[in-house]
Nucleic acid binder design. Structure first.
Lengths: 109, 109
DNA sequence: TGAATCAATAAGCAAACACTTATATAATAA
DNA sequence: TTATTATATAAGTGTTTGCTTATTGATTCA
């Protein structure tokens, strides 16, 4: 890994909203519309963050019906470091359980 | 460590020139004028990078005569992670040994 | 078919970033 | 003292970032 690759990797992570997204993904695969609820952000904002994470190969996407399910890329060479960094961060106030309780968790299969 | 602290920490690291600076500092304490030689950058550019690293508490400074000697802050809570990230990066072409050979290494004590 | 839903992309914008040159400050050397 | 050296800071500039609103594309449902 050279200096520019490392820079891209770290820049993809060093945004508090993207760290929140990654923190959620370390628990569960989620779609854009769920993130808009969890982070209270607009759909295009989330989409653009996911594009950044995808370009850094930190996440993978899987189309399922109307939804795109996003997951952590566990095959990324620096995946263990990412998990460690995420472990240093507190649990977000808004949890996936809240989503479920509000009937906003997407179930697609 | 909350999300904004983590963001500041990672943003301080995620610049290829600052990573080079940190890589050098993981070997030796150095002053600004040595970095201008090693990185081929202007003095104010280096000074401004050091300020960023200092604000993130990644480095410490010690005034010695006209020079300011910069060192890695080994007491930073995430120092071990930093060292690990730096270990993933290749050795820079321009080495401190080259500086010495050219008589440009500062000796101050 | 037509309406609704989920998501990607485009364009625009304010703020942050990484430099530059110019200048100021402080210590040393002549 | 005066000149030199090392560094910090100020101001300016082009680029990047993280959002916004508007639009488009694709899938599902009635």
């Amino acid at each position: 890994m050279d200096y520019l690759q490392m820079e891209s990797y770290l820049k993809a992570i060093s945004d508090h909203n993207r760290m929140l997204i990654l923190k959620y993904l370390s628990k569960d695969s989620l779609c854009i519309c769920e993130f808009t609820e969890l982070l209270d952000m607009t759909q295009p904002a989330i989409s653009q963050h996911m594009r950044k994470l995808k370009q850094a190969e930190l996440v993978t996407e899987e189309k399922r019906g109307r939804w795109t399910i996003w997951a952590l890329n566990v095959r990324h060479p620096q995946y263990p470091i990412l998990i460690h960094l995420l472990s240093l961060l507190p649990e977000p106030e808004r949890t996936i359980e809240t989503l479920v309780a509000e009937g906003k968790k997407v179930v697609c299969n």
